[in-house]
């Protein structure tokens, strides 16, 4: 029974991943997290980076999406068995799978986004989400008339708590009296894909007097944009702040800004250096100082984010880069408590 089901899985995975290998091509496999490449957010950014590399660097790109948490490992293994030149695992949920598979295929190269695996053939790409969240928190506090801000998290995990903590700190920096209402869609990975609940939570925040919400909730975040649209009536404006990808376009005029997590550039540069034979194992951090994290300004929010606000944000950005402002980091808080 077990044998035959394994055979089936292998057969199906084989069919899915079959590519005709040419001798000289550089093959990159990307395993996306559950939100999928069209989540308009985190995975969309990773996919974009891969596509840009395909175009600019002439690599062969293969992307697969996990339908549940148990499919990461077989997908990574299947790409490994096909000896892809670089395999990129997107998302914190793949950390264990990457750890296991990278040990089984020591001759291959792996990149992991959002989590750290210490292995000689893995490069871990980490983002300083709290820094960017701090900036959008400051922006939210400047735009808010009520002094009440909202935060919508997807799954309640330390990574998302890190967004929340930075956001709150940034808001308090600008307006010490600002309050932040935080809600989480859920505690399982289903919560990345529940826009209905994201909308309901956002409505409840807006109705409680919140006028700016920042969502770090994957595809559930789209519910926030709908809620902002529905509650912006008769001169009252309710704002939303996007996350990971630039989401300013989703509801023009209502999206104050987006916290950019440049997963796309991280993916692109990793592919680029691997193709040049300069793959380095270890941890690479992307923050404000190397533009791996930023806030978005484009034609959609040009008028919402006034020049004074931008000047203030850029000042804060400089101070963070210079180390004058220490943005509280949920990760370091956690490790401290763990030590005690």
């Amino acid at each position: 029974m077990i044998r035959s089901s394994r055979l089936w899985i292998a057969l199906i995975a084989g069919l899915l991943l079959t590519t005709v290998a040419k001798a000289d091509e550089f093959r990159v496999g990307v395993v996306l997290d559950r939100g999928g490449k069209d989540d308009k957010s985190f995975n969309a950014a990773a996919f974009k980076g891969g596509k840009e590399a395909e175009k600019a660097l002439g690599i062969t790109l293969k992307t697969v999406e996990a339908s549940d948490d148990n499919s990461f490992e077989p997908m990574l293994r299947s790409l490994s068995q096909k000896k892809f030149d670089l395999i990129i695992a997107v998302g914190i949920a793949q950390a264990d799978a990457v750890k296991k598979i990278s040990a089984q295929f020591p001759q291959l190269k792996y990149a992991l986004i959002d989590a750290q695996v210490d292995a000689p053939n893995v490069t871990s790409l980490l983002f300083e989400e709290h820094e960017g969240s701090y900036l959008v928190g400051a922006a939210a506090a400047m735009a808010s008339k009520t002094g009440k801000l909202g935060f919508l998290g997807g799954v309640d995990i330390p990574l998302i708590r890190r967004f929340q903590m930075g956001y709150e700190a940034g808001a308090k920096k600008v307006n010490p009296k600002a309050t932040v209402v935080a809600n989480y869609v859920g505690v399982t990975t289903e919560a990345w894909n529940n826009p209905t609940k994201g909308r309901e939570l956002s409505l409840s925040q807006y109705d409680a007097g919140v006028d700016v919400i920042f969502a770090a909730a994957g595809a559930s975040g789209t519910g926030m944009f709908d809620a902002a649209e529905e509650r912006s009536k008769g001169g009252v404006k309710k704002f939303a702040i996007g996350c990971d990808s630039n989401q300013n376009w989703i509801k023009p005029g209502l999206v104050l800004t987006s916290m950019l997590k440049r997963v796309d550039t991280a993916v692109f540069s990793t592919i680029d250096s691997a193709k040049k034979g300069q793959f380095v194992a270890g941890t690479k951090r992307f923050g404000l100082q190397n533009q791996g994290i930023d806030y978005a300004v484009d034609s959609f929010n040009d008028k919402l984010l006034t020049s004074e606000m931008r000047a203030k944000l850029d000042l804060l950005k400089k101070e963070i880069i210079a180390g004058k402002i220490k943005v509280p980091d949920y990760y370091s808080k956690r490790s401290k408590t763990a030590q005690n």
Binding site: N193, N194, P195, T196, K197, A219, T222
Partner: peptide
């Protein structure tokens, strides 16, 4: 009701149990 009233599009596994 889920995709055309309570949210603005269909998204994967949106029924969520």
């Amino acid at each position: 009701t889920l995709s055309v009233c309570l949210s603005s599009s269909f998204s994967r596994s949106m029924t969520a149990g």
